Computed example of a mutant assay.
Amino acid sequence: MHLHLHSNSGISGDMLVGGFLDLGLPLTLLQDHLEKLNIEGWKISQKSVEKLGVSAIQFVVVYEDQNHHRHLTDILEILANSKLSLKAKSIAEDLFQSLGHAESSVHQVPIEEVHFHEVGAIDTIIDIVSIAIALEYFEIESVSSSTIVEGVGKVRFSHGECDLPVPAVRKLLGDIPLLRIPVTSELVTPTGAVFLRRFVECFSDLSPLLQPRKGVGCGTKNLPHPNVLELQISEQKLIAEEIIRLETNVDDLSPQLLASCLEKALTAGALDCWATPVFGKKGRIGQQLVLLCFEKDRDLLLEILLKESGSFGVRVQPVKRLKLDSRHENFSTEWGNISMRSGFLGKECWQWKPEHRDIVTAADRTGQPQALIEAQVRQAWGAKLLASREPE
């Protein structure tokens, strides 16, 4: 199962748990698992709220905590002595260890001496362990997120006053992209930041999920915008990529030079390229050349376009695309070994085709028509895929 976060207002532990509850995590199950921590003085509940017209679930932790200032070793001991599942325990320990390393770096003390303040309070322990329980419950295998929103200005906390994001959050986020909005409020908490650092594989405002289930969690603050976090889960996950589109119009390039230009672009790393007839200025018939590439290949392909197309300029646009998970595999057939390209959505194969060069080689060797060989290879590969899906 894949989880995608859509952040309109930062991220925090209670927002994540609220979203999981809205997705269907039973509160009674969560309560039963949290009791395995063997710590007293807390109660949890959930309530349906509206944040500027957006319905959400608020996760509420009520507690009586006389010892907010715990060391990392104290929290790890609580987890070690708990009866949580091994997976939930491992996730929670990993999150707290990451928090500990961030605090250790910020305050320049050994990790064993890290002294948690807000993070050591019972409500934060409950939040982090609840996240671990939810990840196991929904069998989350991968996570992506939109760009994370953060406020501006200063915030007062146990160490005094500082700029947003607070030092530990800034350390955890590192190079994670932030969208700063004109709200004087902390929107990304340490719990939210450590979740992003440890679990999110990529950041894209384009959700990679098809027909996801959605849950919305909210924070306690009332802000000028809906203070919510949307969680989406689905087994049907596409691959989301941010790529570059290069395009230019030409009206004096011969077909031979046009073909050569596109061939050089493909050799240099273009993901795709094509030419489309256009009707240009002064009644001229021309071609629009388009290349798709990754950012790392942009400059080389720009150079090829400017050198080989005769154009004086190239338009550059960042674009987003969703695609199937493309896999290549050798397939032994009566026509010889054929390289097959298959497109998967999750565990299901939606598209498959043989590499044309292998079909041409087989046709030249056997004297059979390419169309016949391709049709039979496609049919045989489809039968193999179908057989692999049948129950044993």
Rank of each mutant, 00 (worst) to 15 (best):
L29S: 08
G13C: 12
D22L: 09
G219Y: 00
T333P: 05
V228Q: 01
G192N: 12
L5V: 09
I140P: 07
C218A: 12
R198Q: 11
I338F: 00
P177V: 15
G367M: 09
E392N: 08
I359S: 08
L229E: 02
K320W: 13
P177L: 10
G219F: 04
I122T: 09
G313W: 07
D65F: 12
I285P: 15
H159S: 05
N330P: 03
A380E: 00
G18P: 11
L305I: 12
L30E: 08
R213W: 13
I338W: 00
P391H: 07
G24M: 02
L76A: 08
H6G: 10
A380S: 10
F312L: 15
E139D: 15
P369M: 14
D252A: 10
R357F: 15
S332T: 14
D127C: 11
A134Q: 02
E308R: 14
G24N: 03
P318R: 12
V152G: 10
K89P: 13
L84P: 15
R341N: 03
L99T: 11
E392I: 15
E247C: 03
L3W: 00
V188F: 05
S145A: 14
S105V: 14
P354A: 04
S158G: 11
I131T: 00
P318E: 03
D65E: 07
T333C: 03
V166Q: 00
G41M: 10
W350S: 13
W350I: 12
R298H: 03
E136F: 15
V54K: 00
L52M: 05
R284C: 09
N249P: 05
S332Y: 14
Q97R: 13
E392K: 06
D123L: 05
E103C: 15
T333S: 13
V109E: 07
E150N: 12
F20A: 04
I304L: 01
N337R: 09
S260H: 13
A387E: 14
T189W: 02
F116C: 10
L5Y: 06
L306T: 13
V316M: 04
L135K: 01
L37D: 04
V200A: 01
E329T: 04
E150W: 05
V169Y: 00
G217E: 04
Q351V: 13
S82G: 08
K296A: 06
L322M: 11
G153R: 02
L302N: 11
S145G: 10
Q58C: 06
S311M: 04
D74Q: 03
V278M: 10
I44V: 11
E118R: 07
E136V: 12
H71R: 09
L271I: 14
Q58P: 07
V194I: 09
L231I: 02
